[in-house]
Write a protein that binds this DNA or RNA. Structure first.
Ligand SMILES: [Mn+2]
Ligand SMILES: [Mn+2]
Ligand SMILES: [Zn+2]
Ligand SMILES: [Zn+2]
Lengths: 147, 147
DNA sequence: AAAAATATGCAAATCGTTCGCAAAAATTTG
DNA sequence: CAAATTTTTGCGAACGATTTGCATATTTTT
């Protein structure tokens, strides 16, 4: 127990038994450099050095467990269900998804007010929430024909 | 064009070329009778008469296109990603998901205020939104050991 | 009643993701 | 440092929910 490997560039909330390797660090950097959340496939395509898809999935899982990145599901009518990954910035975020060009825009703040009213009304203890907004981004509204 | 088959118990927004069969009607009834949203698998299990899984999927797709039901994705850490179906009641709804007993509770009203502020801030035209709240339901808070 | 259209069951295909295993890389031990 | 141990990686196979093709059954139209 409590055996934590070295070679970590970040503090772990809970000790996990693995290592931060070159490939995993590169995965993380890619997501930190990207303004947009990326799917596993997109991460894979943006990797310069070759990397097996299974390793991408394992790496993303590792980084998410370590708290460095977080993911959400997007149910896009054109592209189907995809999981998107982004760095875990300080606080939680919500994204707007453009149904035309499929880009994401980050919200500055959470549009959900206090959840107390909901908790009182339902008796629920609310622990997490996920919000996805879909619509058309500024660019796509101008280029009416889409991208 | 504009050929719409008979045997429909509801009005279609857009004409579609298929029929409301006994089996599809039973699918719809099941969802209308259920307080909880149901997954394709749950619908399948609750059908008394035998029905192929492919027919369940095709039927649910048909009903959703006809606007009679709607679906959303749930990303549950225990059960993975599942699509849930429920009748399309008058207005859009949001659900609370209990991470202990996996039940759903419906919110009375949408906790999202006006989206105008977001639209101004981001330039986005918001067309849809999906909100999932996760937490612990009243029962599960009492039975601390979960269901 | 016969012809045309659509739904259904069944089996196979699909596709993103996960898994098992042997080889490679990183870490620990002495 | 080299040897022993642990973890990661690539590769191919497995997985599982959903979709698809096709022959047959059901429903609708004529
Ligand atoms: Mn929020
Ligand atoms: Mn709402
Ligand atoms: Zn756009
Ligand atoms: Zn519960």
């Amino acid at each position: 127990m409590q055996i934590v490997r070295k070679n970590l560039t970040f503090q772990l909330d809970k000790p996990i038994l693995y290592m931060m390797t070159k490939k995993r660090r590169r995965l993380l950097e890619l997501l930190q450099e990207s303004v947009q959340p990326l799917s596993a496939q997109q991460v894979y395509e943006q990797m310069e050095e070759s990397l097996d898809m299974a390793t991408v999935y394992r790496g993303l899982k590792y980084l998410e467990e370590a708290g460095e990145i977080s993911s959400f599901l997007l149910d896009c009518s054109e592209r189907g269900v995809e999981r998107y990954y982004s760095q875990s910035s300080s606080c939680h975020r919500h994204f707007l998804h453009c149904v035309s060009c499929h880009s994401f825009t980050s919200l500055n703040e959470c549009p959900l007010g206090s959840l107390e009213k909901i908790e009182k009304e339902t008796g629920f203890r609310v622990e997490e929430h996920y919000l996805t907004l879909k619509g058309t981004c500024e660019k796509c509204q101008i280029n009416v024909r889409g991208k």
